[in-house]
């Protein structure tokens, strides 16, 4: 209920903020955007990995086209959302070669690019998020999917373990687990 109210508030405030930008954004995008922020509640990043900027800002990397089909930058800016009590900074990548350490990387829906991107993110504490069927099993840490009309997400447990990110069991509780880690 709380989430719905928050989403509703975001939508309403969004209209007041930038009606033109938000008008094309779906409710599903907003839910996913809120989930995105929520994920960060349950994940801890190592401090010595990132650039200087990362100590002051939370960096979200967007590779080519945002898979969530919405302007997340405008939404967070309008809502003055801070992640991990840090200002959110966005970095945009068009090629795999341009990739650099970020906290969170939104993976595009291209199946060709996926292995290359994952090749970069593997063994790096980068939270990869996608919105494509089967991407979770292929190595993206969190992948959205729709189940009975509701937004849900899956977590690749093995991949999470390899990144070195510290992910709370509570997040696993809420998610569908793929590639379970076999200890």
């Amino acid at each position: 209920m709380k989430l719905y109210i928050k989403i509703l508030c975001i939508i309403i405030s969004g209209f007041f903020c930038k009606p033109v930008l938000l008008s094309g954004q779906s409710q599903e995008f907003v839910v996913k955007a809120v989930f995105l922020e929520r994920f960060t509640h349950f994940i801890e990043w190592p401090e010595n990995f990132y650039t200087k900027d990362s100590t002051e800002n939370f960096i979200i990397g967007i590779f080519r086209r945002n898979p969530l089909h919405g302007n997340i930058e405008e939404l967070y800016k309008c809502q003055q959302i801070r992640i991990k009590n840090k200002k959110v900074e966005y970095k945009y990548f068009k090629n795999v070669n341009e990739l650099e350490p970020v906290h969170l990387l939104l993976i595009p829906s291209s199946k060709k690019l996926l292995p290359k991107i994952l090749n970069y993110t593997r063994n790096r504490p980068i939270l990869t998020i996608s919105d494509n069927d089967g991407f979770g099993a292929k190595g993206v840490l969190i992948n959205f999917f729709i189940e009975t009309g509701k937004v849900r997400f899956e977590i690749n447990e093995l991949a999470v373990y390899e990144t070195g990110l510290s992910m709370s069991y509570l997040l696993f509780e809420a998610a569908k687990i793929v590639n379970k880690r076999m200890d």
């Binding site: 209920m1 709380k2 989430l3 989930f35 349950f42 509570l170 809420a174």
Partner: peptide, 19 residues
Amino acid sequence: GEICVSPLSFNDHTGARNL
């Protein structure tokens, strides 16, 4: 209650009831 943080965070009523 602690485990219920997840369903509360992600609006998961079914998960909450299961817990």
